Amino acid sequence: MILPAYDPAAPYSVFQNAVMDRYKPGVRRPTTVSKMKRVLGEFAELCPTLGDINYTAIPPWIEAHRGRLIVTNLSYLGSFRAACNVARKLVPDSPFAEWGPKRWFSEADLAHDPERTFHGSEDVAKVLALADARARRGGWPAKRLRALVYTLVYLGARRNEVLGLRVEDVDLADGLIHIRPNARRRLKTRSSKALLPIPKRLKFVLAAWAPLADSEWLFPGARKVGPWLHGANGYKPSDQIRELGEDAGVPNFTALSARHTFATLAEGWGWGEAMIQRFLRHTTPITQKHYRHVHIPQMAAAADRISFARPRASA
């Protein structure tokens, strides 16, 4: 599509149509197309003309959607920035010329975003203990949830990477898990594909669970014909994980918070940046930094090892 000449009085739909021409189903992922369509529609309410697409549109958009998680709004702003770049000829005064999406939020907002939550070791232990107890006295769904939560916690992997695993991706004999794309689940980036070692405790849990899955999928849905990627309200994986955390007294426990927790606590396990990156598979150090948080107990333990004592003279 050839973009028309810029006219500040032209309707916003000119920009909207130009962008969606580049975001057609089949060319882009369905979720990407859906997200772009949604954010363009939201800004349509604030920008009647092309001349209105500038930095003044961002604050009222944020205010209109303050009820959403900040990480969600950041993602939508990232899509809108991509739209402005795709049709930059129609947006000479880009809202992102000076500030990127993150700069539009205060540090206080970002710090209190529940999706950036991480948990201490004690809280993770509470969640796992409750999962163990419910699996012992519960049925197949409770055992599935236990295995899922253990996998998320011990690998620090992304939600859909874990939910889309096949049984054949788990090599218990060699203690390895293959993170790779399949027909039902694509990976986020090329670097997401990996071969990860299975921690001892997780190996024990998966050895008990895999025969019970009764499916080619490690974490199948209720009918066992596909991966447990979706579900009715209250029965989605995210709903079940969050509810388990709340019942254990650990609010905001999610697949994403488990990943943040892994990244944060790994330093206390003696891991360096390179090892953390190999497990989490972030493409840039900046992204990895976003997942690591200040953890006072971990810092206190390190502080206890500070010493300026003179070494003893040898006899």
Rank of each mutant, 00 (worst) to 15 (best):
residue 258 A to E: 09
residue 187 L to P: 06
residue 273 E to R: 02
residue 295 H to I: 07
residue 159 R to A: 11
residue 215 S to H: 09
residue 213 A to F: 07
residue 203 K to N: 06
residue 192 S to T: 01
residue 257 S to E: 07
residue 179 I to K: 11
residue 173 A to F: 13
residue 296 I to L: 13
residue 202 L to F: 02
residue 256 L to I: 13
residue 230 H to E: 13
residue 207 A to N: 10
residue 264 T to L: 00
residue 225 V to E: 15
residue 282 H to W: 00
residue 175 G to K: 03
residue 209 W to H: 01
residue 157 A to H: 08
residue 160 N to I: 07
residue 220 P to V: 13
residue 232 A to L: 12
residue 272 G to D: 08
residue 244 L to E: 05
residue 254 T to Q: 02
residue 173 A to M: 15
residue 206 L to V: 04
residue 153 V to K: 06
residue 258 A to H: 08
residue 229 L to R: 05
residue 202 L to W: 06
residue 273 E to Q: 09
residue 190 R to L: 12
residue 252 N to E: 10
residue 281 R to I: 00
residue 204 F to D: 12
residue 231 G to N: 05
residue 264 T to D: 03
residue 194 A to R: 03
residue 185 R to A: 15
residue 206 L to N: 01
residue 297 P to Y: 00
residue 213 A to S: 08
residue 243 E to A: 09
residue 256 L to P: 15
residue 187 L to W: 06
residue 293 H to Q: 08
residue 285 P to A: 01
residue 248 A to D: 01
residue 280 L to G: 04
residue 285 P to S: 00
residue 264 T to S: 06
residue 262 F to Q: 05
residue 172 L to H: 09
residue 247 D to W: 09
residue 176 L to S: 14
residue 273 E to F: 14
residue 296 I to Y: 11
residue 180 R to Y: 08
residue 199 P to C: 03
residue 289 K to E: 15
residue 288 Q to I: 10
residue 161 E to A: 07
residue 261 T to A: 02
residue 152 L to N: 10
residue 206 L to M: 03
residue 285 P to T: 04
residue 274 A to K: 11
residue 202 L to D: 03
residue 221 G to M: 05
residue 187 L to M: 00
residue 167 V to H: 06
residue 281 R to D: 06
residue 255 A to W: 00
residue 274 A to S: 12
residue 223 R to I: 13
residue 273 E to S: 08
residue 186 R to W: 14
residue 217 W to L: 08
residue 278 R to M: 11
residue 273 E to D: 05
residue 216 E to R: 09
residue 187 L to T: 06
residue 257 S to G: 11
residue 153 V to Y: 03
residue 227 P to R: 11
residue 209 W to K: 04
residue 243 E to M: 12
residue 217 W to I: 08
residue 256 L to E: 12
residue 155 L to S: 09
residue 278 R to W: 12
residue 201 R to K: 15
residue 239 D to Y: 02
residue 241 I to K: 02
residue 253 F to N: 04
residue 270 G to A: 06
residue 277 Q to W: 03
residue 262 F to G: 02
residue 199 P to F: 04
residue 245 G to K: 04
residue 249 G to F: 00
residue 290 H to N: 12
residue 173 A to S: 14
residue 169 D to M: 02
residue 198 I to M: 01
residue 293 H to W: 11
residue 200 K to C: 10
residue 181 P to L: 03
residue 282 H to K: 02
residue 282 H to Q: 03
residue 204 F to V: 10
residue 176 L to P: 10
residue 284 T to W: 03
residue 167 V to P: 12
residue 234 G to N: 06
residue 151 T to C: 10
residue 269 W to D: 15
residue 202 L to K: 04
residue 198 I to S: 01
residue 281 R to E: 09
residue 296 I to M: 11
residue 185 R to P: 15
residue 212 L to V: 14
residue 290 H to P: 11
residue 243 E to F: 15
residue 282 H to T: 06
residue 220 P to A: 05
residue 291 Y to A: 01
residue 218 L to M: 08
residue 209 W to M: 05
residue 254 T to F: 02
residue 291 Y to G: 01
residue 217 W to Y: 10
residue 217 W to D: 06
residue 279 F to L: 11
residue 187 L to R: 04
residue 237 P to D: 09
residue 160 N to T: 15
residue 223 R to M: 08
residue 275 M to D: 12
residue 270 G to S: 13
residue 231 G to P: 03
residue 273 E to L: 07
residue 187 L to K: 10
residue 264 T to V: 01
residue 242 R to W: 09
residue 270 G to Y: 05
residue 243 E to L: 08
residue 189 T to D: 09
residue 272 G to A: 10
residue 158 R to W: 07
residue 238 S to H: 10
